[in-house]
């Protein structure tokens, strides 16, 4: 709490944005004027009292879909990113600390996964396993974790050569202590910065998958998907697809303002 009082204005703005998004997501059924699927008017209607932000390509209320979309989008992005960071960081740290054949094995497997273009890899898995939310999460998490692995391994290698890690080894500490207590706290700044970025990339990735029909399945709403679905409106000079895009940008900015603040705290800098 004390931390919060001393936080800079930018961090507070970020916090407000993210909190706002989360509250909207949680209370979606109470806030939204219509349901996610209800058709309320014509295609791409302008803003009116009936539908505050206009309607989408099927005549559903954009505002309601945006609100319900917040749920799917934020939850999906959060879970996916957490999963990818848990696995990527753990494997990366193990590789850096253990070295030798374990490092080689992990790194080569990761290289193989990375050799496939991400979209093609995702398509492969999703078309074989079917496109359920669960599988979507796991697929994106695996793909993301390759990047996280590389970062975590590189950062951990820099820390691993420091004397305090050697002290821990000489003391006889196990792998878990070295990873958790010696390396992780020092790797946090890099990982947190990456988290902010990855979190936002997930929306965009889901959007591209949705475009190919393998993302979240209709009629579920997600912001990335909504941009795609309504992209055609741009040609008619209707700015409806810009609204979900703005929502993505809004949340991205909020998340990164908080990330910046964390970085600041973690680096121990003042001012």
């Amino acid at each position: 709490m004390n931390l919060l009082i001393k936080s800079p204005l930018s961090a507070r703005i970020g916090l407000c944005i993210v909190l706002f998004n989360i509250i909207v997501a949680i209370f979606a059924p109470l806030i939204a004027p219509y349901s996610e699927t209800e058709v309320v008017g014509d295609v791409w209607e302008q803003m009116s009292g009936n539908s505050l932000l206009g309607t989408d390509h099927l005549g559903r209320d954009l505002m309601s879909r945006l609100i319900f979309g917040a749920r799917n989008t934020i939850a999906l992005a959060f879970i996916t990113t957490m999963l990818s960071f848990l696995s990527g960081t753990t494997l990366g740290f193990v590789a850096a600390v253990k070295g030798g054949w374990i490092d080689n094995l992990f790194s080569r497997i990761i290289d193989i996964i990375m050799a496939f273009p991400t979209l093609i890899f995702a398509l492969m898995i999703l078309s074989v396993m079917g496109s359920s939310v669960m599988i979507l999460i796991v697929t994106i998490a695996i793909l993301d974790s390759t990047r996280v692995y590389r970062l975590a391994r590189a950062v951990a290698m820099d820390i691993e050569v420091m004397d305090f890690v050697e002290v821990a080894r000489l003391r006889g500490e196990g792998l878990w202590w070295i990873m958790r207590r010696e390396i992780l706290p020092n790797a946090m700044p890099s990982l947190v910065a990456e988290f902010g970025l990855r979190f936002c990339f997930v929306f965009l990735f889901i959007a591209s998958l949705s475009f190919l029909g393998l993302g979240l399945q209709p009629p579920l709403a997600d912001w990335g998907g909504m941009v795609r679905e309504n992209a055609g409106a741009i040609t008619f000079g209707i700015f409806i697809p810009l609204i979900p895009a703005a929502a993505i940008a809004f949340l991205t900015v909020g998340v990164n303002l908080i990330v910046d603040w964390f970085l600041h705290l973690a680096s121990g800098m003042h001012n």
Binding site: M162, D163, F164, E166, R169, L170, R171, G172, E182, N186
Partner: peptide, 28 residues
């Protein structure tokens, strides 16, 4: 090899380093 030494021997043989900056974890 360090890996095959028992905990008691590790305890009885300690080391102090040249650079106290890097020998202490800055987050502890």
């Amino acid at each position: 090899d360090l890996k095959h030494r028992d905990k008691n021997n590790l305890r009885r043989l300690q080391m102090i380093y040249q650079m106290p900056d890097t020998a202490l974890n800055p987050k502890q």
